[in-house]
């Protein structure tokens, strides 16, 4: 494997200039929490919209000593995760893991791992839509001015109208938040369940949108407040009484699958974070 990396690729695929540019933009993003920093998104061997933003951040940060974990929809074994992991290990030769606690860099789409993350870890998120103001202001130029003036009235009216029309804050994912009491940020692609994990976290969160050519960050110990009203507070997807069919966990984000059997099949809810679920199952087996 090392021979292959030496011969065919520069370490971590991207050339040194590209890596340096992205690192510089990451520093800027960390310095201004929640601010969208434009960057020169490179052509990658995967299609735009398949995680190129997150991939470029990971490739710019990774060192040979790192341990990598890649997840997609909470699963280490989904197609996107497998292919991204293969690409990164082939061009860097770093060790990989499925254990959240053992990884130093975690690249993810859709989820923040259930296990609490530490200060020595970095979470890289692949982002489909970078700007929360797109809902109310499709013109990027005007949206940028709105960000610079902290003119978020339109977005608040959007929340207000959501209550007027639907009787509650009907926003499934991409929940807008205010970072560090200044910039409005899209929490895409994570579900509402993971939004509180951003608030005053120990870990550095980096967001990369390859197609949108934007990088943003939530540094450790940064206030992240979801948009909410005193009488209509932000709520996660938690439904009491639901539990994982595999490990029995009641405090995780669940997904449902259709399981076919002799009677035609049924819906089963399991943990979205598969490696955590497997870990819990293994732990109960050893104690039993």
């Amino acid at each position: 494997m090392t021979e292959l990396t030496d011969q065919l690729y520069h370490f971590a695929l991207l050339d040194e200039d590209a890596q340096r540019e992205i690192r510089r933009k990451l520093l800027k993003a960390v310095a201004i929490p929640g601010h969208l920093v434009p960057f020169a998104s490179r052509d990658m061997p995967i299609a735009r919209g398949w995680g190129t933003g997150g991939l470029q951040i990971t490739l710019s940060l990774i060192t040979p000593e790192d341990t990598l974990k890649v997840i997609d929809q909470g699963d280490d074994e989904s197609v996107n995760a497998v292919n991204l992991r293969r690409l990164i290990t082939r061009t860097t030769g770093v060790a990989t893991t499925t254990d959240t606690t053992a990884a130093t860099i975690i690249q993810t789409r859709h989820r923040i791992p259930e296990e609490p993350m530490r200060a020595d870890q970095i979470l890289v998120l692949q982002v489909p839509m970078a700007d929360p103001l797109r809902w109310v202001e499709p013109n990027i130029e005007r949206a940028t001015i709105m960000h610079s003036e902290a003119d978020y009235g339109k977005m608040w009216v959007y929340m207000y109208e959501s209550i007027v029309r639907a009787g509650d804050l009907r926003i499934a994912s991409q929940y807008p938040v205010i970072v560090n009491r200044r910039y409005m940020m899209d929490t895409t692609p994570i579900p509402r369940w993971d939004v509180p994990k951003l608030h005053m976290a120990e870990t550095l969160y980096l967001f990369g949108a390859g197609r949108e050519k934007r990088i943003y960050a939530v540094p450790p110990y940064t206030a992240v407040e979801p948009l909410q009203f005193e009488d209509y507070p932000f709520r996660t997807e938690y439904r009491p009484g639901q539990r994982c069919a595999r490990c029995g966990a009641e405090n995780t984000f669940l997904t449902s699958h259709f399981v076919a059997d002799a009677h035609g099949g049924r819906w089963e809810t399991t943990c979205s974070d598969v490696s955590y679920c497997t870990k819990r199952c293994a732990a109960t087996e050893t104690t039993a």
Partner: peptide, 16 residues
């Protein structure tokens, strides 16, 4: 109502 409320929301009114 939303148009009028925008000014209130900008003035940090957070009770629907």
């Amino acid at each position: 109502g939303g148009n009028v409320a925008e000014k209130l929301l900008l003035a940090e009114w957070r009770h629907f």
